[in-house]
C-alpha cells in the first residue's frame, strides 16, 4: 500500500542518537534481569526450605487450593468469581479499564450514561485515581487504593446504587465531560440472577428499550430497533432476577459459537435515571452482562417470548 499518510510520517527526521537510546533501554533491562536472577535464586532457596518444612508438618493437607482466575461452580447452584489476579503471562492480560477502591476491583461496565444525566446522579467524591497499573504491573499494584488503568480521574458514588457495587468517574477536559461507570463484578459469589441484575435497578425503572443484531454490534452500527411490547420486556426483566448463574469456562462458553446474527442480540434498556444497561442475549436463553466470569440461563418460555420480538 502506498499512501500519503505513510509518506508523511516517513518524513519525520531521525535524530542521530536514536540508535544509542535503543541500546540504553536494552542494557538497562539487562542489568535488572541479572539482578532479579540473583534475588530469585536467593528467594527460591528460602522458598524450598519453607516448602520442605511445610510439607513435613502438613502431610494430610488436601491440596485443592485454587489460585487461578477461573470462575467456579460452588456446588449449590452458585458461581464464585475470584478477584482479578494478574496472569503469569502478563502480556496476554486484557487491559480493560479498572479502578481499585476499598480493596475491590471495579471494571468498566456495560451500563452507560451520558454526561447530562450523570450530573443528576453523581454522588459524593471518593477520591482520585492513580495511573499505576499497566501490562507490566506486579500483583501488588492491584492492592493500592485508587490504582487504575485509566489515567487520572475523579471517582464518585452513584446516587441510587450501592457503592460496593458501582462507582463512576467524572472528568472535565478541554470543555468536554467524560463519564464512565465501573462495577465490582469479581471477587464475588453469585447465587442467583438477582445478585447482579437486582443491583442494576432495572425492574420498574424502564423508560424505553431497543436491540440490535450481531453484525451491527460488531461493526459499531447504531441501527437499533425499538421494543414496543413493554409487557413482554417487563416480564423478562423481572425473570432476570431468577436466572441461574453459570461459570464462563473457555470450552463450554456458548457465546464462542454464537457470534452470528441468528443467535446473538444486544439488548439496551434505558432507565429513568439516564443509565442504559446493555445485555447480550443468545438464542438458547443465555444472558451476559459486563466483563464478568459468569453468564445466566433463563426459563425458556419467558426468554423465547422476548426473543420472538427481537427479529
Amino acid at each position: 500500500m502506498s499512501n500519503k499518510i505513510k509518506q508523511e510520517i516517513s518524513k519525520i527526521e531521525l535524530p542521530k542518537e536514536l540508535n544509542e537510546r535503543s541500546k540504553m533501554g536494552v542494557s538497562q533491562a539487562k542489568k535488572e534481569i541479572k539482578n532479579n536472577k540473583k534475588t530469585f535464586i536467593g528467594i527460591a532457596a528460602a522458598l524450598l526450605v519453607s516448602i520442605v518444612t511445610f510439607t513435613l508438618f502438613n502431610n494430610h493437607l488436601n491440596n485443592t487450593a485454587n489460585n487461578s482466575n477461573i470462575p467456579v461452580d460452588t456446588g449449590d447452584g452458585g458461581v464464585h468469581i475470584p478477584a482479578i489476579q494478574l496472569p503469569e503471562d502478563n502480556m496476554s492480560a486484557d487491559m480493560i479499564g479498572l479502578i481499585v477502591y476499598n480493596e475491590n476491583i471495579y471494571t468498566q461496565t456495560r451500563t452507560e450514561i451520558d454526561a447530562q444525566a450523570a450530573k443528576d446522579i453523581i454522588g459524593e467524591k471518593l477520591g482520585t485515581t492513580k495511573a499505576i497499573i499497566d501490562e507490566w504491573s506486579e500483583q501488588e499494584a492491584y492492592n493500592k487504593e485508587f490504582a487504575s488503568t485509566i489515567g487520572k480521574a475523579d471517582v464518585y458514588t452513584v446516587k441510587g446504587y450501592d457503592k460496593d457495587f458501582r462507582i463512576m468517574t467524572y472528568t472535565e477536559q478541554d470543555g468536554k465531560i467524560f463519564v464512565d461507570l465501573y462495577e465490582n463484578l469479581n471477587g464475588i459469589t453469585i447465587n442467583i440472577g438477582q445478585d447482579i441484575f437486582g443491583k442494576l435497578n432495572i425492574y420498574g425503572n424502564i423508560s424505553s428499550a431497543q436491540y440490535r443484531t450481531f453484525s451491527d454490534w460488531n461493526n459499531s452500527i447504531d441501527d437499533y430497533q425499538p421494543i414496543t411490547d413493554m409487557e413482554t420486556l417487563n416480564v423478562f426483566v423481572e425473570e432476570l432476577n431468577q436466572t441461574k448463574p453459570l461459570p464462563r469456562i473457555q470450552n463450554s462458553d456458548p457465546i464462542s459459537n454464537s457470534r452470528n446474527d441468528e443467535q446473538f442480540r444486544e439488548l439496551s434498556i434505558n432507565l429513568n435515571d439516564g443509565t442504559t444497561v446493555k445485555l447480550t442475549l443468545l438464542k438458547d436463553g443465555y444472558i451476559y452482562y459486563g466483563f464478568m466470569g459468569a453468564y445466566f440461563k433463563m426459563n425458556e418460555d419467558i426468554f423465547s417470548k422476548l426473543w420472538s420480538i427481537l427479529k
Partner: peptide, 14 residues
C-alpha cells in the same frame, strides 16, 4: 527518544 528507550527497556524485560 524517551519512548524509544522505554520501549526497548520494557520489551527486552518482558
Amino acid at each position: 527518544l524517551d519512548v524509544v528507550q522505554e520501549t526497548a527497556y520494557r520489551s527486552f524485560k518482558t
